[in-house]
């Protein structure tokens, strides 16, 4: 059996002098199957075992549709805010010298390291009616906690590092000579920015945007405390899954989860297509 797999492996992979392919691939692929692929198959099968009517009833109820709209919309708002400020942060980190730079650099990663529940209760208090930001905003008539705006705030927090950390290395590798050459050739600063810098950064920026968006779409812990979780208004899709689960309605939970997975995959496919299109037009 072992011999047979080894022999087969030689057919579909290029031979190299480096040993250990069989063992490492075997361990990695087995773990991948056991931890990720087989359990994910369970949800697909659960969805497939439902009648079409039952699936549509669970996955596309008014309440579920409202939650998809909120999750997608708030994730998009969060990703856009991070698209702007993440770009500015990456620009500042690479191009400028200023006091506190290394501190800024360290704290950009905080949303990766901080447990989401901690972020969630902290944002809920901060933007709550008595919070440092919530109270003055309330005074101005702006309600953040317990509204869709609160969801967008939480998703902005959770997606903060992605654009910075994807754009930063590309910006760092971008030769200053290129910009200076453009200037020497008579380009204005704006032309250099739009014709030289923007096309080089666009694929990385889009990757960061997509990662922030995807993370926001499924995010749960940081959102549920600030959202208020009112059905049809501030209830995100992942929360709806947990509500179905608490009622032991596994089929409905699976149906909603499958729609969410489908949204993620469609979005990733769109982003991938966009990226290869950008690379082609940057080269051509």
């Amino acid at each position: 059996m072992a011999l047979a797999t080894t022999r087969k492996a030689f057919i579909w992979r290029r031979r190299t002098a480096i040993p250990g392919f069989g063992v490492t691939f075997g361990v990695a692929f087995s773990l991948l199957c056991l931890v990720v692929l087989i359990p994910l198959a369970a949800i697909v099968l659960r969805g497939a075992s439902m009648s079409p009517e039952a699936f549509v009833h669970a996955a596309f109820s008014e309440r579920a549709l409202a939650s998809y709209r909120l999750s997608v919309g708030a994730a998009a708002v969060g990703a856009c805010v991070n698209g702007v400020f993440g770009l500015a942060t990456a620009w500042a980190l690479v191009r400028y010298e200023f006091p506190g730079k290394s501190l800024l650099n360290a704290f950009v990663d905080l949303p990766f390291a901080l447990p989401t529940a901690v972020a969630g209760i902290s944002l809920a208090v901060l933007y709550g009616p008595q919070g440092w930001l919530g109270a003055p905003l309330e005074h101005l008539g702006l309600h953040v906690a317990n509204t869709p705006a609160g969801v967008a705030v939480a998703l902005t927090f959770i997606g903060l590092p992605f654009v910075v950390r994807t754009v930063e290395p590309v910006l760092r590798d971008l030769a200053l000579e290129l910009e200076e050459a453009a200037a020497t050739l008579g380009a204005t600063r704006l032309q250099t920015l739009t014709r030289v810098i923007a096309p080089a950064l666009a694929p990385a920026w889009l990757t960061g945007f997509a990662l922030a968006f995807a993370r926001g779409l499924g995010e749960y812990g940081s959102v549920i405390f600030i959202a208020g979780n009112m059905p049809y208004r501030s209830e995100i899709a992942p929360l709806l899954i947990t509500i179905e689960l608490e009622q032991f309605d596994y089929a409905s939970a699976s149906a909603i989860a499958l729609v969410m997975l489908a949204i993620s995959f469609v979005m990733l496919a769109v982003i991938n297509t966009g990226q290869s299109w950008m690379r082609r037009s940057a080269q051509g």
């Binding site: 369970a42 949800i43 749960y220 929360l239 689960l245 596994y250 699976s254 969410m260 993620s264 995959f265």
Partner: peptide
């Protein structure tokens, strides 16, 4: 796993 919601990650183990 990065593009799967944590809640869905929990759900799949409940289903298994």
């Amino acid at each position: 796993p990065f593009s799967v919601s944590p809640v869905v990650a929990g759900l799949i183990y409940v289903l298994v």
